[in-house]
């Protein structure tokens, strides 16, 4: 192993198994990966090394509904450093009841390839 090779351990967040994956990395390139139990783990480590992504699942305000909020999530992960800008956009949203799960309330949030969709049915009051 040359001096510039580093060993790094990742805890995979793709599923609840949370595999501990060990990667040998040299100059930003992955030399080897061990410890993953599925291909998603390997993809996760590549993603973490190059451009880590995450999802968030907050709520938006509902007017005229039996509940004050409807929960939402992102259809695709977004770059980690975009979490707070995306959150700010979601906080600005107001929707009117009734709302149905699966409805897209914001397309291409912050210009990213991800949509904000409703995850909870809220009937009108």
């Amino acid at each position: 192993m040359s001096e510039s090779t580093i060993k790094k351990t990742y805890t995979c967040i793709i599923c609840p198994n949370g595999c501990d994956i060990e990667a040998e990395i040299k100059d930003g390139e992955i030399l080897s990966i061990t410890g993953h139990t599925c291909p998603k783990g390997e993809a996760y480590v590549h993603q973490e090394l190059t451009a880590p992504t995450r999802t968030i699942a907050p709520s938006v305000l509902v007017t005229g509904g039996e509940l004050p909020l409807a929960s939402v999530r992102l259809t695709k992960p977004i770059p980690k450093d975009m979490i707070f800008p995306v959150m700010d956009e979601i906080k600005k949203l107001t929707i009117t009841a009734p709302v149905c799960e699966g409805t897209v309330v914001l397309e291409k949030v912050c210009g990213l390839d991800s949509e904000v969709i409703i995850t909870k049915n809220v009937k009108a009051k």
Binding site: L61, L69, K91
Partner: peptide, 11 residues
């Protein structure tokens, strides 16, 4: 006090 406010304020 029990609560510090609302998450989302009604416009």
């Amino acid at each position: 006090w029990l609560l510090s406010g609302k998450l989302r304020e009604e416009p």
